[in-house]
Design a protein around this nucleic acid. Structure first.
Lengths: 166, 166
DNA sequence: CAAGATATGTTATATGATAACAAAGGATCC
DNA sequence: GGATCCTTTGTTATCATATAACATATCTTG
């Protein structure tokens, strides 16, 4: 598992930060992960990761595909979906169900259960850690005998930037 | 707002219960709500509510449409989507983002933020109350200045029935 | 009854996702 | 080194989900 050079808390995503550094680190982490785990970081996969990392924003598969197409890296939907599957499986990209869109993981590596803060105004998406099985819902589920395997936690609202002036 | 004659806790959804009673109550609540609030419970709207209430399961819009079509109540997608919009707006149906599907609300009336427990084996969906702004995530959001307007909380796993024998 | 508002019917199309199979590239074994 | 296998990519076609736009009907109210 790669080390974590990315913002691990949601505040950072909404604050100005050295984003090129942020992208470079994440790509490095992805490279390290792939070589350590014997999986291939092909040009398409790498490029899709970069495209998503370039924005703190969820992008639709077809939006990503448009970029790939412009670069001659594949022009049909399966190309984008396969790369997204790969990155999702290995924890470097998450799907935002609410938006039917994908976002780069901001602290890849460890197995984690992400929660998303989606700004409806500027469309930025920040990743936070979802409350685990020790939270209110986890306890309620345990009480009725429901075994949680996966959680989707996505809240929509206004980020700090858009609450203030905007 | 209608009174609540439905199971208000997730356990009930996974337990055997008098379901015809359960459906009848919910329809009655819907009727009462509509007459009290001066909105129309048209045949299509009523029937869509019944269809969803008949199962503790999320159904796709096209699946619902198939039923309507068989009954001569409309055969084109907008018919189903409009009824679902109406029921969703008034809080009698929720959309399960994870499944791109819809489920009848089991305790309609009050404004509430639902959480869903989705069984991946039997496909039943139970509704619980989502942790509010006082939960872990709510506090984390408040700490970074994010204003939560709406929350999607959907956990997937095995319900009590499917954990045991099945 | 006329006029406005709400709901439905219908056509067409946008948007998101995958099945299926052919071809290319890289790793492995003899 | 070459045959073989496995993974990835290219491509076609299609499925699934959702909505725009406009015509028609029905209900409401002055």
């Amino acid at each position: 598992m790669p080390s974590d050079g990315q913002p691990a808390d949601p505040a950072k995503s909404f604050q100005p930060h050295d984003h090129s550094h942020c992208v470079a680190d994440a790509v490095a982490a992805l490279e390290a992960y792939c070589s350590e785990n014997g999986v291939k970081l092909t040009p398409v996969r790498r490029r899709v990761a970069e495209i998503l990392l370039a924005e703190h924003r969820a992008m639709g598969a077809y939006e990503i595909l448009d970029v790939l197409r412009g670069e001659g890296l594949g022009s049909q939907p399966p190309v984008a979906y396969r790369a997204l599957d790969f990155l999702t499986t290995h924890g470097f990209v998450h799907k935002v169900e609410r938006l039917n869109a994908f976002v780069a993981c901001t602290h890849p590596g460890a197995d984690h259960s992400p929660a998303f803060l989606i700004c409806r105004s500027c469309n930025k998406v920040a990743e936070a850690e979802a409350p685990g099985t020790d939270g209110q819902l986890g306890k309620a589920a345990a009480a009725v005998g429901f075994q949680i395997e996966q959680a989707v936690v996505e809240v929509e609202g206004l980020c700090p930037d858009c609450t203030d002036g905007a």
